[in-house]
Lab assay of single mutants.
Amino acid sequence: AREMGVIAAMRDGFGFIKCVDRDVRMFFHFSEILDGNQLHIADEVEFTVVPDMLSAQRNHAIRIKKLPKGTV
């Protein structure tokens, strides 16, 4: 199932999404941004959540798609 959120932080090559449906900041890597979009803080996005290979306690966001403002 796809989830929605807002870009909360951007770093060098990765960032975090503030999720709508869960009280966490979800890690993502820039390589998972679809359509070659440039994302910025406060952009609204949808994404798929998958378990982190390195840590069973953590998840991360993949297949991130920018949404029109006002969607979330």
Rank of each mutant, 00 (worst) to 15 (best):
Q57E: 14
L39A: 00
V45H: 03
T48A: 06
K66A: 04
K69P: 15
P68C: 05
L34V: 12
A56Q: 10
F14C: 10
K18W: 11
K66P: 03
D35L: 03
K18V: 05
L67A: 02
D35T: 06
M53P: 15
L67W: 02
R22Q: 07
L39R: 00
G70I: 00
R11N: 15
M4R: 11
A8C: 13
K69F: 10
Q57G: 13
L34T: 08
E46V: 02
I33A: 05
V72D: 08
G13K: 15
H40I: 06
H29L: 06
E46T: 04
V72L: 13
D12V: 04
D35Y: 09
M26L: 14
F30S: 09
M4T: 10
N59R: 09
F30R: 06
I64M: 01
R58Q: 15
L34H: 05
R22H: 12
M26Y: 14
A56W: 07
V49K: 06
N37F: 07
M53Q: 15
Q38I: 15
K65H: 06
G15H: 03
I62E: 11
V49E: 05
A56T: 12
D52T: 12
F27L: 12
V45K: 01
F47M: 00
R63V: 02
L39I: 07
F14M: 09
F16D: 04
D21A: 09
V45Q: 01
M53S: 12
F30D: 08
A42S: 08
R63N: 14
K65C: 05
K65L: 02
R58S: 11
V50K: 10
D43L: 00
G5S: 07
T48L: 04
I7W: 02
G70P: 01
E32K: 14
D43Q: 01
A1M: 11
F27S: 08
I41H: 13
G15T: 00
G36W: 01
N37L: 11
I33R: 01
A8T: 14
P51R: 13
I41P: 13
I17Q: 00
M4K: 09
Q38D: 12
D12Y: 07
K65G: 03
N37G: 11
D23R: 12
Q38F: 12
A42F: 13
D21Y: 07
L54H: 14
R25S: 13
D35R: 05
V50M: 11
H40P: 00
I17E: 00
M4Q: 14
G5D: 02
T71A: 07
K18S: 09
M53A: 15
V49Q: 05
F47T: 01
D43Y: 00
R63K: 14
G13Q: 03
A42K: 07
G70H: 10
L67I: 05
F14I: 07
I17C: 04
M26T: 05
A8D: 13
H60N: 08
A8E: 15
A42L: 10
R22S: 10
M4Y: 11
S31R: 14
V20T: 07
K66S: 03
I62R: 06
I33D: 03
E44C: 05
F14S: 08
I7M: 04
A1P: 09
N37K: 15
F47H: 02
D12S: 08
M26I: 13
I41C: 10
G13A: 06
K18G: 02
V24G: 12
T71M: 07
A8K: 04
D43C: 02
G15C: 02
R22I: 02
D52I: 04
A1Y: 15
N59F: 13
G15R: 00
T48M: 15
L34Y: 07
A61R: 00
K18L: 05
I64Q: 00
V49F: 05
D35Q: 06
H40G: 10
H40V: 09
E3W: 05
P68L: 05
Q38N: 15
M4F: 14
E44Q: 05
K18M: 07
K66Y: 00
L54I: 08
V49N: 10
V20M: 15
P68R: 10
L39P: 02
V24S: 13
S31T: 14
K65D: 01
I7T: 03
D12K: 08
I33H: 02
F47L: 01
N37Y: 13
L54P: 14
H60W: 03
M4N: 13
E3G: 07
M10T: 04
F14K: 07
I33Y: 02
I7L: 01
V45W: 01
I62D: 00
K65Y: 02
D43M: 01
F47E: 03
E3Q: 08
L39Q: 00
E44R: 02
P51K: 15
V72M: 07
E32M: 05
D43V: 00
R58V: 09
E46F: 00
V20I: 08
M53G: 15
K18T: 12
R63Q: 14
M4I: 11
F30C: 10
F14Y: 09
G36T: 09
G15E: 00
M26Q: 02
T48G: 00
Q38T: 13
D21T: 14
I62W: 03
V50E: 09
F28S: 06
K69Y: 04
P68S: 06
N59Q: 14
E46Y: 00
L39T: 03
G13V: 03
T48W: 02
N37E: 12
T71V: 07
G15V: 02
K66N: 07
